[in-house]
Design a protein around this nucleic acid. Structure first.
Lengths: 333, 333
DNA sequence: CTGAAAGCGCTTACAG
DNA sequence: CTGAAAGCGCTTACAG
C-alpha cells in the first residue's frame, strides 16, 4: 500500500497536521516565532514525507530565484581547461551548500542577448564572471541592471568585487627559488602588461630580487610576449647572454618558450632551467615536465561564490584565501 | 528625462494600454484568439519599453521552469575536455534558441543529493545526462521521479532516449582506410566491451573487413584494454607478429599504445601505423600527430537538447544526425 | 505562539 | 475578440 496522499505542497502539510500554512512556512524557514514543539512536529512530518518546498513559488514570493549565473567566455579552456573545471567545481559545491543552483551562460564576444534574457527574465540573483570577459560589455551591463556580480581574477576597474590568486606572492616564491638554485640571472617572459595578473606576477619577480639583494637585469625581462616570434627573439637573447634560468608568466608562454628552446636545441634543464608561473596539464606532461605554480582553483571558485552569496545577504562562512604550491619538476633539476 | 513609469510587469503593460492582463498575456504567448490590431499595438509597446515577462511567475503559473538540467560526471574532462566543451556549447545554443536556460549540476559518484534538490524543488523541466553516468543511479532516480531526460551516448538500457555519434560507421570508415593503406592485418585495441560505444566501434572494424573481403585476425584484436600493462602485452604481440598497423578505440587507449610503442622503440609510422577512433587535443599535439576520427560534438549536444525539448512538448526543428570526419595525420603517413 | 488574508506576476478556464 | 477571476505554491505584514 502506498501513502494514500502525496505531500507535495505546503498546503498538504498544513492540512495533514491541522495547522496553517503560515506555521509550516515558519517552521521551515526558521523565521518568526514558533513553538518548539510545533516546529519539531512539523519538521518530523516533512522529513517523513520527504516534502520539499517548490523553489519557483518560493522564488516568486521572495523575488529571488536561488540561482546564480556562471558566465563563461566562449573560448574558455582552449588553453587551460582544468582551471575552469576546478573553479566550476568550487563554485558549484559552495552554491549547493547554501541551496543555490548554478545557471550557466556562454558569452560570445559582444553578444549580450543570452545574458540579457537571464537578467531581464529575472532568472538569477547574481553572477560570477571571469576576468577573461573584461573587455566585453558584460560588467557594464550587469552594473546598469543592478545585478550583483563578482569577478574571478582582478579587474582593472576598482568598484567591482573580485577574488583572485596570490599572484604576487606566488611569483615571488618561485623567483626566489630560481634565484637560489641558479647562481646567475633569471630571465622573465611575461604576457600582456595591461593585465593586473601580469603586473602582480612581475611585482613578485622584482620583489624576490629585492629581498635577496639582487639586481633584476632589465635586459632579460621581456614583456608582452604573445607570439612565437616574440618568444624566439627573447630566447635568442637569453641564450646569447648565457642566462641559465627562465621563468615564464603562464603556461601558454612556457609552451612557446619550450618550442623555441627546442628549436635552438638548448637542453632543459641542462642549458636553461625553465619554470612557469602557472601550472597546467601541459606543464605536467611535457617532456621534460615543467616546474610551476599550482593555484587552488577550487578554492578560488568557492570564494567567488561565498562573496556573491554574501552580497546577496546570505549568512556565509568566512572566505579562506586560495593558496598555491610550487611544484618542482624536471625542468629545474 | 527618463520614462516616468517603469514597465516591469504584465499589469504595467495592461494599465498603460487600457487592456486586460489576459489580453497582454495572449498577445505575447500567441495562444487564444486576439485581434490582430490589438496584438500589434501590444507588441509594439512591449518592444518600445523592452518589457520581458518574469520567468519565475510564468513558471509558477505553467508549472514549468524553462530550465534544463545538464548533469556532468564529476571527473568529466580528465581525459577529454573538448568533448564536454563542444557538447555543452551545442546544448546551450539550442536551449537558448528555444528560450530555455541550463542549470548545471555535478554528479559525484553515488551521491544524488544535489540532483535530488533540483528534482524535488522543481527547478528543471528535464535533464541531459551523459553515458559516463550510466553506472550511477541517476537514470533510475530520474525515471522514478518522472523527470524526462536524454542520454548522450548510447545506453545499454533500451527505453531511454539517447543521441549518439555514428560510431559504427566511423569505425568502419577508419578501418577501411587503414586496410587499404597497409597491406597486412590491422590490429585493434579496444576498451570495455560492456559499453555500447565499444561494441559499435568493433562492429565497424569487423564490417570494414567484411566489405573488403578480408578476414579479421582474432589474434590481433585486444579488448578490455584498460591499463598500461594490458596495452603493453598487446603491443608486444603486435610487434612480434610483424603487424604494421594498429587502431585504438579511443584517445586514452591510443595514448597508452603510444607510450608502449615508444618504450619498444617502434617508429611511428615507420614500423607501425597508428590511428585512433576518437580524436582529442592529445591526438593532434602528440608527436607524431595521430590520425583519428573527429566527431561533431557540438551537433551531438544540440541534438540532445532538441530531443529533450521535443519530449517536453516543444515544437522543435528536426535533428540533423551528428557527423564525423577522419583526420589523416602523421601517424599513418 | 498562531492564523487569515493579501500578494508575488504570470496563465487559463469560463463567461460574455 | 476581450476581460474578471481563480489559481500556481509560496511568504509576510498584520491582527489576535
Amino acid at each position: 500500500m502506498e501513502e494514500p496522499k502525496k505531500i507535495d505542497t505546503l498546503e498538504d502539510v498544513a492540512r495533514e497536521l491541522g495547522v496553517s500554512k503560515t506555521t509550516v512556512s515558519r517552521a521551515i524557514s526558521g523565521k518568526g516565532r514558533i513553538g518548539k514543539e510545533t516546529r519539531e512536529r512539523i519538521m518530523a512530518f516533512i522529513e517523513a514525507h520527504d516534502y520539499r518546498p517548490n523553489a519557483v513559488a518560493k522564488g516568486l514570493a521572495q523575488k529571488k530565484t536561488y540561482n546564480l549565473g556562471l558566465l563563461l567566455p566562449v573560448d574558455y579552456g582552449d588553453v587551460d581547461f582544468s582551471f575552469f573545471k576546478d573553479c566550476m567545481a568550487g563554485v558549484y559545491r559552495t552554491a549547493s551548500l547554501y541551496h543555490y543552483d548554478l545557471i550557466f551562460s556562454i558569452v560570445e564576444g559582444e553578444e549580450l542577448k543570452q545574458l540579457r534574457r537571464l537578467v531581464q527574465n529575472r532568472k538569477m540573483d547574481g553572477a560570477i564572471i571571469s576576468r577573461a570577459m573584461e573587455r566585453s560589455r558584460v560588467q557594464e551591463y550587469l552594473t546598469e541592471n543592478k545585478m550583483p556580480f563578482v569577478v574571478i581574477g582582478t579587474s582593472r576597474e576598482s568598484q567591482v568585487e573580485t577574488v583572485d590568486n596570490k599572484n604576487r606572492e606566488a611569483g615571488e616564491e618561485l623567483t626566489q627559488i630560481m634565484l637560489l638554485k641558479c647562481g646567475g640571472p633569471v630571465a622573465l617572459l611575461g604576457g600582456d602588461e595591461s593585465y593586473v595578473v601580469t603586473q602582480n606576477r612581475l611585482e613578485g619577480y622584482l620583489e624576490a630580487h629585492r629581498k635577496l639583494g639582487r639586481q633584476p637585469e632589465k635586459d632579460f625581462i621581456f614583456m608582452n610576449v604573445s607570439s612565437y616570434s616574440a618568444a624566439m627573439e627573447a630566447v635568442e637573447k637569453i641564450l646569447e647572454g648565457g642566462v641559465r634560468a627562465l621563468i615564464c608568466m603562464d603556461d601558454v608562454i612556457s609552451d612557446l618558450a619550450l618550442g623555441c628552446l627546442r628549436e635552438k636545441e638548448a637542453a632543459i634543464p641542462g642549458t636553461v632551467r625553465l619554470a612557469s608561473m602557472y601550472d597546467s596539464h601541459q606543464m605536467e606532461c611535457s617532456s621534460p615536465s615543467i616546474t610551476s605554480i599550482r593555484f587552488d582553483s577550487v578554492r578560488l571558485g568557492s570564494n567567488a561564490c561565498l562573496r556573491l552569496l554574501h552580497m546577496l545577504g546570505e549568512q556565509v562562512e568566512q572566505e579562506t584565501p586560495a593558496g598555491y604550491e610550487v611544484i618542482l619538476r624536471e625542468s629545474t633539476k
